[in-house]
Amino acid sequence: MRVGAIAANTFREAVRNKVMHAIVGLALIVILCSKALAWVSAGEDVKVMTDMGLAAVTLFGVLVALFSGANLLYKEVDNRTSYLILSKPLRRYEFIAGKYLGLVLVLLGCSVIMSTVHAGYLTTFVASMEEEEVLRGEMLRSFYLALGQAYFLIFLELCVVAALGVFFSVISSPVFSAIATFCTFFIGHGLRNIKDLTDVVESQAGDLILKAMYWVLPGLFMFDIKHYAAYAQPRSLGTILGCVVYAVCYCIVILTLTCVIFRRRQL
């Protein structure tokens, strides 16, 4: 109940925040503009619109996670709103859990809005296509399944990014926290290449550093299936479940670290 109260309040704060409205509004404009780019793509309209739309959902979702996550705990401590909350019979880990769950609800809401508009827009576009170009039957089902999987994995990725944002927000200022989270997001997408690099690096120290990065930083590349969605190639259930387990475990580790640091914090 206490965790629920904190989560509901965090969600309410985001819903009443005008910056959040602006980010989601901008995301919808970009999604709706994807058709303009599709016109110059020589018959690859659906692929371009899918790819671009999913990229917009990811990018703006990350912006929401950065904007909310980076401020999440810093603001509570800096504004001293945490004084009254933590003087109630609430443990600090419950406070972190509530704040994070609230943020996940915000990301879920944003993802659902952006995904629904994107999927609806794609459906309308597909329905308006010439008969010989129309995706149909098994191909259409595969397309929607892959699209749904892509939305789901984007949401999971946002949950991981949000956990990192919360972690950085407990140890630093919002600006540093946002920068650190964004850098981690960026590196997390290129992590697959880092693993490949370990095979060619000769220095032992370099090899060690790259391996440490690979194991410590989040492997966000595994959540990126935009390309498969654009080509109507759904991933196996095992792959999706693997991503779920990875995201849950990574978030638990990061949030546990956050709780340990916050528990020792003098307010």
Partner: peptide, 22 residues
Amino acid sequence: DPRFYEYLTAGETLRFFGRLLG
């Protein structure tokens, strides 16, 4: 100098704290 969430009304604030108290 107690500080509260500025986006909540006074009633919402007390209901929020009430929920924290069970």
